[in-house]
Design a protein around this nucleic acid. Structure first.
Lengths: 216, 216
DNA sequence: TAAGTTTACATACAGGTTGTATCTATCTGA
DNA sequence: TCAGATAGATACAACCTGTATGTAAACTTA
């Protein structure tokens, strides 16, 4: 057996990693349509041939970049969400924490541009949401499913519900990102998101039932 | 004074109208990036020179198309909303009617592709929402402002609130549009949107206060 | 280990696209 | 009627994507 300096898998991994990193930086800065493949491979230190060998075309590279970014955030978000104690206990807090985590993650320009702006247009809504489904959308749906099972959440179809909640968080992120006063915009958004989340839980109704308001 | 066959304003109007109509059809079918200016001007029956003279570049034509589509829907939506009687009376019904109207309008492929998918990517979020603000987003914000003034809606900042509600409707429209069973998906979405709208009104809380639940 | 096969990568090319520059035609106002 | 302004047409240059072809490296099998 002869000594190989680099295995094929290593070469592939190195090339893909470099291209995804370069694509992430450049797609984030100039948008998908605003950067050419020559620029990407140049920054990645490979040739255009390598890109087309590994990804087939520019769109597939973009999809890989998007999946990478989504995966990164989802991992981090899941860690934050389940860091301290009981999830099912305070459902609203859990959801608010995840919403605020997503909001914060989406302040990074690369996330906004790649995930929220170009994603749907470049990949089409179906494929875009499929990648989300495998990541943050799936995370939300899972939490909601548990909530419904435990009776904490109203018995609504969880997948559509997850879509709408994530859409709310996405818009909030873009709104805050474009706001002249991000901190104020963020507070406004959080103040609105809370009642929306409470609306799909039974906590509020129960609280009102258990504690009849003034002089009931 | 000599007899002019066509005035300059007429020529301009005819060219712009033809280009917007062709752009609308082609952008809807192939997406902004999927159609060349040559195809557009060919379908419009003008030359590329006319396009660049009237709109400056391809992006500006797209912006004009988007504004046109938005305006059309908004007009129609406003007519539907305020067709029968008192708006402030049943706020939730009004909002639900507008949401369902938007949902239906967004089932047309040109609306989905141009307004919801390509809009943000091509024009950027700020400009995209600015066009929405002059149309459907403004309509919603206006209704919400009246609701807050009259005490029907919780005292939340209306602009961010309008953004989040429209984002919900947008996602619902895309979800329904991509669903294998659109009717079922639509029912699911409507079933979720209702409690979300009720959440920002005082109707539910008041109802619970006024009518204590079973054996309170 | 040596030959053959597959995989990874590099280069050159063809087709198509955008935006501009230049030129012509039409309209407007004096 | 005529000069200026506006609308539109054509030609061109730069660019970009995807493919086809060629080369080097790694893997397989005998």
């Amino acid at each position: 057996m002869q000594v190989s300096r680099r295995t094929q898998a290593d070469r592939t991994a190195a090339t893909r990693t470099a291209l995804i990193a370069a694509g992430r930086r450049l797609f984030a800065e100039h948008g998908f349509a605003g950067v050419g493949t020559e620029t990407i491979v140049s920054e990645a230190g490979v040739s255009r041939g390598a890109l087309y060998h590994q990804f087939g075309d520019k769109t597939e590279l973009f999809a890989a970049v998007l999946a990478h970014v989504e995966g990164e955030i989802t991992e981090q978000l899941a860690a934050e969400m389940f860091a301290d104690a009981d999830a099912a206990g305070d459902f609203v807090s859990l959801m608010m924490r995840s919403a605020e985590g997503w909001l914060e993650a989406c302040q990074r320009p690369d996330v906004q541009r790649i995930v929220l702006l170009d994603g749907p247009s470049v990949l089409g809504w179906v494929r875009w949401r499929a990648i989300c489904q495998a990541n943050v959308l799936g995370l939300i749906e899972g939490v909601l499913a548990i909530g419904v099972r435990d009776g904490v959440v109203l018995p609504l179809p969880v997948r559509p519900l997850a879509h709408l909640l994530l859409a709310v968080a996405d818009e909030a992120a873009l709104y805050v990102g474009a706001a002249a006063e991000p901190d104020a915009a963020r507070r406004d958004m959080v103040a609105i998101i809370r009642p929306l989340i409470e609306a799909i839980t039974r906590a509020q109704a129960e609280r009102l039932i258990i504690t009849p308001p003034e002089g009931g």
